[in-house]
Design a binder for these strands. Structure first.
Lengths: 239, 239
DNA sequence: GTTGACAACTTGTCTAAACAAGTTTATATT
DNA sequence: AATATAAACTTGTTTAGACAAGTTGTCAAC
């Protein structure tokens, strides 16, 4: 790991551990140089990332102020697997694969809004229900491109897809584009989530790509309306 | 404007103008140095921001690849005013103030989830309906802290609050935290958005702060379910 | 007491340089 | 033809330094 990432992690943990509580200032950039034995630019890189992720607000002439922070909010935040989220939040979660098709075709229409130009791409299709605290809250439909990942064993779907991609296959996940909309619940939604006809669900569609920019995973998540929540932190664009 | 921001804007416009189309590589970092007369680190700062905002994917050993990009998607994205969005997207939009209370009290309970500890704070309360293409799609309820901004004239609400804050008062908007949930439509929602009882709405609550980290604006937006859409770009956290 | 100037802090921007590491291409060797 | 090597590109990380600009406290002058 690089120095700036080490400094980032250390500061982040000290913020979350309230060694640097909300409302206080981090050590100044010059102090960070002495504390960690780094150059100022290296420290600034760590601070810039803390600011980007909503941990601090940098104020010129004053310092780096620790601000209120919300991350790892359930169930939609950044690119984090359910396994990681459950571990972080100490949530009791279960994962039921109710459909597994190793040779399917990508339903293109669902993802054209996210900039895909794929047609009739062969995929592994997986449908799962996420059970949280003994309640079925989310349906996940995953389509994984066979041109990038030829085989996705059912066992990987039952455990964690990301763990399989990253740790078993050594792939590097780069970025994802997400779209959140609302839609009337289908019969499938009602069946698996215990909803009444006429209800709505929150639909999260995402396309995930590797660090070499190859899109490989298309996901549609359908959420119970009363359990859905999404948090976002945004900075005002510079002028 | 700083050099890196100038380079960022120039490259961004050339990407959006398809001078650098999706699938091609930007000039290398050393070429950018010659093209703009800058040092490599300055160019890298611009590239890092393009990557952060989903314009490019940097690939070591190869270059900066232009990728599919979606920004300024209607109606919820980053911190952008409706006036800015409408101008950018050439959308016909109207803005009806149906409630204006210059001396109200912040409904604290709605925003505690976003980390507020305010109680009984005096605010200017504004309720507006956003009419897009002759259809009422969104209700916006804004509460602006009087301790930060004593007066918000009704005319500012009828035009653009952000324009008033930034250009009239000279305030610098820094960041915002947003929360998206779903909720049953209230009688007020049904009346202004033309919904039937039993319908759901998408609720976006946000707290916006200045660059000095003072929270000053609390907003609750309630959206017609069939028109609501939110786009997000996220990168996988480094290890 | 009030004001103003200054010094000492803070962050913001930019530069030039060095080395590491991944990719591609050309070249020499087998 | 196939392979290995090397060179020339690319981005990634870190350093040391300079100057600009905003904030705060001190101290002298009024």
């Amino acid at each position: 790991m690089n120095k700036s990432a080490l400094v980032y992690d250390d500061l982040m943990q000290k913020i979350e551990g309230e060694i640097y509580p909300v409302g206080t200032y981090l050590p100044s950039e010059n102090q960070l140089c002495d504390l960690y034995g780094i150059s100022r630019e290296t420290g600034r890189k760590a601070l810039a990332e803390l600011a980007e992720n909503g941990y601090i607000q940098k104020i010129r002439g004053k310092g780096s102020l620790v601000i209120e922070h919300h991350q790892y909010e359930f169930p939609v935040s950044g690119i984090v697997s359910y396994k990681e989220l459950a571990a972080k939040l100490h949530i009791k979660t279960e994962n039921i694969v109710y459909s597994y098709e190793p040779n399917a075709i990508l339903p293109v229409a669902d993802f054209t809004a996210l900039g895909t130009e794929l047609t009739e791409a062969p995929v592994t299709a997986i449908k799962r229900v996420r059970v949280i605290n003994d309640e079925p809250d989310i349906i996940d439909k995953d389509y994984i491109l066979k041109t990038v990942i030829p085989d996705v064993p059912r066992s990987a779907a039952e455990d964690s897809l990301y763990d399989y991609f990253e740790n078993q296959l050594g792939l590097e996940i780069g970025y994802a584009t997400k779209e959140i909309t609302m839609a009337p619940a289908t019969a499938e939604d009602c069946e698996h989530l215990g909803l009444k006809p006429g209800a709505y669900v929150a639909v999260v569609r995402s396309v995930t790509s590797l660090t070499d920019a190859r899109a490989f995973q298309f996901t549609e998540s359908r959420h119970r309306p009363d359990k859905f929540s999404f948090r976002d932190f945004a900075r005002r664009a510079h002028k």
